[in-house]
Design a binder for these strands. Structure first.
Length: 851
RNA sequence: GCCCGGGUGGUGAAACUGGUAGACACAGGGGACUUAAAAUCCCCAGGCGCAAGCCGUGGCGGUUCGAGUCCGCCCCCGGGCACCA
């Protein structure tokens, strides 16, 4: 073997070995227990960033570990290849998105290969390939026929200058990112997936996912948002016609305290009021300005305007004024709420602002009155007061009584309301899956027949930022109706890229299948046993995937699989600082690698400039993203230290679920460790082999192994890496580096290291003659005999504070210890003349004397 | 604003079910080797204190023989909020 560790040649050798043996090729095998390990596929943005390296190393460590445990492992890789950045790049460089995307894929594939991930590359897929998106279209047509895909209007961000729909990301402080124009809301027809039809099942099934983090399940539960309440009708007359304004409330017990109604700007009642009252029209127009981004809407000042209309209270018969409120969402319930200012914080603020009456109807912990300022107690459940026949009822009784009375009047009944909205999938963009619908003047919306799929996306277009180029391309959209044969127009919208990522994991099982979306091989591999990806996907991607799996199940594909992911590991984000220049009024993001920062003693940034002296603005720390240009490219790291160091370091730096502020400062240490492993192996290989045993060292090594095995199972890889270091420390301290203990320790070390730094482990395993393939070696087991000890060192506390320790024979029981401890000098000293009340003993560990 | 996380030395972190706070490293200081440097090796190291000892896991309070770990309130940071992926 070489005298020094040369990662380049070690890694080349190992990768050639794996390639020549197709080591990572997975095949369905009936007898062996399968394990499908999957990391979220990357968007081919150009280069890998540290988030990818972390994500894929986590997956790789797991699969290599499970291989050693004897599982039939599948770990595939592919590309989430449709999306907005390709269009942005196209605009900037005048290169078609297809070309840009395929180039990026080629480069990133090379990077992934150089990291030595145990991936089955024979199953690679790219979602922008017609072979793949054909099945998006195929499933869409099934869903369309079943009514699971349907058309209605949706609200989008509209850039009035570029005459184009903007993604939320392209709206910066209420303005279009390219034009700077104030963004408007616009209603357009779109297709939706009826995910709401599965709301109940998606919610319930969360309870049967023990392998998912509680955190994620809670987020999904809240997102689906099941609430039980009452739908209440408030009758009114408009232009001589009797109508009813419907609201949903979870607080029907407060109905008698309703003093106003608030409707969304898009509500029909608001629109009809606008026709009569120019002030209402002006207010609604005002509401329609700005973005559709809910995070921003939630923070704007709550404003309203009376419509001049009033409705009748269904119980009391009182007249109640109807307002338009900018805080009422058309997308939740029926776009109207009843205002009960005495018992709802938002309604209170609204009523206080506009001088509307506040009528307390619930006895709260502070009494019967509601005086300013608002107190959270006002919203608590309590007994009804000032509510006529409902006085004295508690929450549940009041809801029952009121909903019963409303039902008799046909003005209400109990209802379940969901927060989850149907999934809008239409995008007015080019680089995505064409929606397979033909618009026929006679037949309406007609799905494209199976034998005409896929509707292929032309790959040579270059978008210019003024809308979807497909809509300007007659050769794409001019077609004939599949039903009547008359001239018709193809849909030019494409699908949300979340559609692509909602089922790709099943396609990996059978990427070559031309005749079907998936085949029986998917039933073998699915569900994914371990899914790994960023916590940022906790809701949308994971929920959509759970929905799609059920749609596919109900379509007869993989009939036994409802949940796509049995176990979920949510990787913490890799964060980096971001900087921009603001010279032209448009933000130009500067990569942190190109920024020189000056800090004060506390680490606060004093000034930041680019390497050529331009002042930049610090934008805080956040997730590595293409849009903020703050991704740290791992390539320099790999070039300098090799893949094993990059892998080892990312695992060592923190546990997988932690967010990680990237710093490559301490990479050196990981490299130094791998070099030391090499150096020790070299020393061992040159030394004389002896049968000598070192009991103390063996105990250390096996104790460390025991902990490392446990940590491996609970996926805490940073301490597995530490364990490798500890074992090497023990080995280096051995008096005889050729001893049997050294041989045993090395064989344990290399196997622990094999999942994390596989190239080095592979090479040394062969060089030292342990075998021909470390991946085929069994995972090491700690030897119970090596862990045996005759004496135990007890920590001794007095009143919970550590004062010393005492060695006692392993066999010493409680009464023996109780006898020894009070006579210890340091115990006597700290007890003084106090009386010992009790002695707490934690077996094998600790003794606490309480005085 | 709403929902979900996180906060431990100068830094990344460890401490599994409440039981020795800071394992393992990085950066740092000191030393050895070297003509010198790199590399390597050895030693030191939470803060205050000569020491005994005291303080210390974002802050305040609580439960407990004992709290980084459990409970309550607050502060700060990150993720998500439906068209970034």
């Amino acid at each position: 073997m070489e005298d020094t560790y040369d990662p380049r040649s070690v890694e080349r050798k190992a990768q050639a070995f794996w390639e020549s043996r197709r080591s990572f090729h997975a095949e369905e095998a009936a007898g062996k227990k399968k394990f499908y390990c999957l990391s979220m596929f990357p968007y081919p943005s150009g280069k890998l960033h540290m988030g990818h390296v972390r994500n894929y190393t986590i997956g790789d460590v797991l699969t290599r570990y499970l291989r050693m445990r004897g599982f039939n492992v599948l770990q595939p890789m592919g590309w989430d290849a449709f999306g907005l950045p390709a269009e942005n790049a196209a605009m900037a460089n005048k290169v078609p998105p297809a070309r840009w995307t395929y180039d990026n894929i080629a480069y990133m594939r090379k990077q992934l290969k150089s990291l030595g991930f145990a991936l089955d590359w024979e199953r690679e897929i790219a979602t922008c390939s017609p072979d793949y998106y054909k099945w998006n279209q195929w499933l869409f047509t099934r869903m369309f026929r079943k009514g699971l895909a349907y058309k209605k209007t949706g609200i989008v961000n509209w850039d009035p200058v570029d005459q184009t729909v903007l993604a939320n990301e392209q709206v910066i402080e209420g303005r279009g990112w390219r034009t700077g124009a104030l963004v408007e809301k616009r209603e357009i027809p779109m297709y939706f997936f009826r995910i709401s039809a599965y709301a109940e099942e998606l919610l319930k099934a969360l309870d049967e996912l023990p392998g998912w983090p509680e955190q994620v399940k809670t987020m999904q539960k809240n997102w689906i948002g099941k609430s039980e309440g009452v739908r209440i009708g408030f009758p009114y007359e408009l232009d001589g016609k009797k109508q009813v304004l419907w609201v949903f409330t979870t607080r029907a017990d407060t109905l008698m305290g309703a003093t106003f109604m608030a409707v969304a700007a898009e509500h029909p009642i608001a629109e009809s009021a606008a026709k009569r009252d120019s002030r209402v029209k002006a207010f609604i127009d005002e509401c329609k300005k700005g973005t559709v981004i809910e995070a921003e809407l939630a923070q704007i000042e709550k404003k309203g305007m009376p419509t001049g209309l009033s409705v009748t209270h269904p119980i009391s018969g009182e007249r109640i004024p109807v307002w338009v409120g900018n805080y009422v969402l058309m997308t939740y319930g029926e776009g109207a709420v009843m205002g009960v200012p005495a018992h709802d914080e938002r309604d209170y603020a609204f009523a206080a602002k506009y001088g509307l009456p506040i009528k307390p109807v619930i006895r709260h912990p502070l009494g019967d009155k509601v005086d300013p300022p608002w107190r959270p107690e006002y919203a608590e459940y309590g007994t009804c007061i000032n509510s006529g026949k409902y006085d004295g009822l508690d929450f549940q009784e009041a809801v029952e009584a009121i909903s019963k009375d409303l039902k008799e009047k046909h003005l209400g009944e109990k209802q379940i309301q969901w927060r989850l909205r149907d999934w809008g999938v239409s995008r007015q963009r080019y680089w995505g899956t064409p929606i397979p619908i033909v618009h026929c003047p006679a037949c309406g919306d007609v799905p494209v027949p199976d034998d005409e799929l896929p509707v292929k996306l032309p790959e040579d277009l270059v978008p210019d930022g003024t809308g979807n180029p497909l809509a300007k391309m007659p050769s794409f959209y001019e077609t004939k109706c599949p039903e009547c044969g008359r001239a018709a127009k193809r849909e030019t919208d494409t699908m949300d890229t979340f559609v692509d990522s909602s089922w790709y994991f099943s396609r990996y099982a059978c990427p070559d299948q031309q005749a079907a979306m998936v085949d029986e091989r998917a039933s073998y591999w699915m569900p994914v046993d371990q899914y790994i990806g960023g916590i940022e996907h906790a809701i949308l991607h994971l929920l959509y995937s759970r929905f799609f799996q059920r749609v596919m199940r109900d379509e007869g594909l993989m009939p036994k699989v409802a949940e796509p992911f049995t176990n979920l590991l949510t990787q913490g984000m890799v964060l980096a600082e971001s900087y921009y220049t603001d010279a032209s009024g448009r933000r130009e993001w500067v990569n942190p690698a190109d920024v020189v920062v000056e800090r004060d003693a506390k680490g606060k940034i004093l000034s930041a400039r680019t390497k050529n002296g331009k002042e930049v603005v610090y934008d805080g720390i956040g997730t590595m993203s293409k849009s903020k240009n703050n991704g740290v490219d791992p390539q320099a790291l790999i070039d300098k230290y090799g893949a094993d160091t990059a892998r080892f370091y990312t695992m060592f730096a923190s546990p997988p679920t932690n967010t990680l502020e990237w710093s490559d400062e301490s990479v050196e240490g990981s490299y130094r460790f791998l070099r030391r492993v090499w150096a020790f192996a070299l020393q061992f290989s040159k030394g004389h082999k002896t049968a000598g045993q070192d009991t103390a060292a063996r105990r250390e090594i096996h104790a460390t192994l025991k902990q490392a095995s446990y940590d491996m199972q609970r996926q805490q890889f940073n301490t597995v890496a530490s364990a490798c270091m500890k074992i090497l420390n023990s080995l280096e301290k051995l008096e005889d580096p050729g001893s049997a203990t050294a041989a045993e320790g090395l064989s344990i070390l290399l196997r622990l290291l094999a999942p994390i730094a596989p190239h080095l482990a592979h090479d040394l395993w062969i060089e030292l003659g342990f075998g021909e393939d470390v991946m085929k070696a069994p995972w090491p087991e700690p030897d119970a005999a090596a862990l045996e000890q005759d004496e135990i060192e007890y920590v001794v506390q007095v009143n919970g504070v550590k004062r010393g320790s005492v060695r006692a024979p392993k066999a010493a029981d409680r009464s023996a210890l109780e006898l020894i401890v009070p006579s210890l000098d340091f115990v006597k000293k700290h007890i003084g003349d106090k009386i010992i009340k009790r002695i707490v003993i934690v077996p094998g560990k600790l003794i606490n004397v309480v005085a």
